[in-house]
């Protein structure tokens, strides 16, 4: 077997050493740094993308939460407005109702007073008419001109009775 010929050991071992060292230098100086750089860079880019995606997702979540909050706030505000408005409307209407009621009451009482005074005037006028009528009736029937004072007294008495 050529493998066990000792004369071929030294050239093989020498060139093994030379080529192995050459290859080692090549691997350590070219292959490993270059491929390592590519792999590292790729891992970094992927990690950065993942980080950015996480960050964007957080931002989206925050924006969504802010939107929800704004909506809830607006709804609350609107409800508050409505409630305030309703209270205002109620107060105004109550005030107006009270005003009108008061006015009407005053007008009613004024009207009542006017009616009472008119009635009094009518009664007073009636007294005169009754006295005149009574004097005329007496003068016609008895041809006597009655005393004016007596007639007035009699009419007053009669009115008192009818009342």
């Amino acid at each position: 077997m050529p493998q066990f010929d000792p004369s071929v050991f030294s050239p093989q071992l020498f060139w093994l050493l030379v080529s192995f060292i050459a290859l080692y230098w090549l691997v350590a100086k070219v292959a490993v740094p270059r491929v390592g750089e590519v792999l590292e860079q790729r891992a970094r880019v992927i990690q950065e993308d993942l980080d950015r995606a996480t960050q964007l997702k957080a931002e989206t979540d925050a924006a969504a939460a802010a939107y929800e909050k704004a909506m809830a706030d607006a709804r609350h505000q609107a409800q508050d407005h409505m409630r305030a408005m309703q209270a205002d409307v109620k107060a105004v209407s109550e005030k107006r109702t009270a005003d009108i009621t008061g006015q009407i009451g005053k007008q009613v009482s004024e009207a009542e007073a006017r009616i009472a005074s008119a009635k009094q005037a009518a009664l007073d006028a009636m007294k005169g008419i009754a006295a005149d009528t009574a004097r005329d009736v007496v003068a016609k029937l008895a041809s006597v001109t009655p005393d004016a004072g007596a007639v007035d007294a009699a009419v007053a008495a009669a009115l008192k009775e009818t009342r």
Binding site: P11, Q12, V18, A22, L23
Partner: peptide, 19 residues
Amino acid sequence: VDISYTNSALFMTFAVGLT
């Protein structure tokens, strides 16, 4: 010391070159 460049060394060179 015999350090002749042999066919074995040639293929070692090929291996290094191809790598």
